[in-house]
Amino acid sequence: MDIKNNVPANKLIFPGQIHETPDGGFLITKLDEVINWARSNSLWPLIFGTSCCAIEMMSAADAKYDWSRFGFEVARASPRQADLIIVAGTIVMKMAPVLKRLYDQMPDPKYVIAMGACTISGGPFFYNTYSVVKGVDHIIPVDVYVPGCPPRPEALLHSMITLQEKIKNEAFFRKS
């Protein structure tokens, strides 16, 4: 996997990222790496699709794109068993409390991918609408944004690999 080399350096910086410091212990650093490796390669997404992006999410699950190559295939219908919520589709005011409740039900650590223009910023429904939430990050914290309307399945896979890169940089034991 050479995706890290292909991501531009400025894209790897994200808010709240913990940068490695030279005085970390060898043992816990290695333990962290093992935990992050395990976490990043068994992300179980929640089946959560509201509109068009959900179809592309299904396409990513099918035989042609096959997200099970990365350990994503165990899509769960219950938030209690999921690590990752791919918000695929517009979120409206009436749906927002439901989404928040779903997110709250997920066990830690949990990750969010905002898929498509609607979830990032309201997208096509930003202007002149009365019922659309202008960006899902008003409701739940988002880890990775993937633009497109809808993004193609490869773009979704790219976002999931980008999320894996983020998880691999996390610190579990090295908390200050």
Partner: peptide
Amino acid sequence: NFEHSVYDKKQL
């Protein structure tokens, strides 16, 4: 190009 995934919305 379709690989636009970012950690920060401002980069879009």
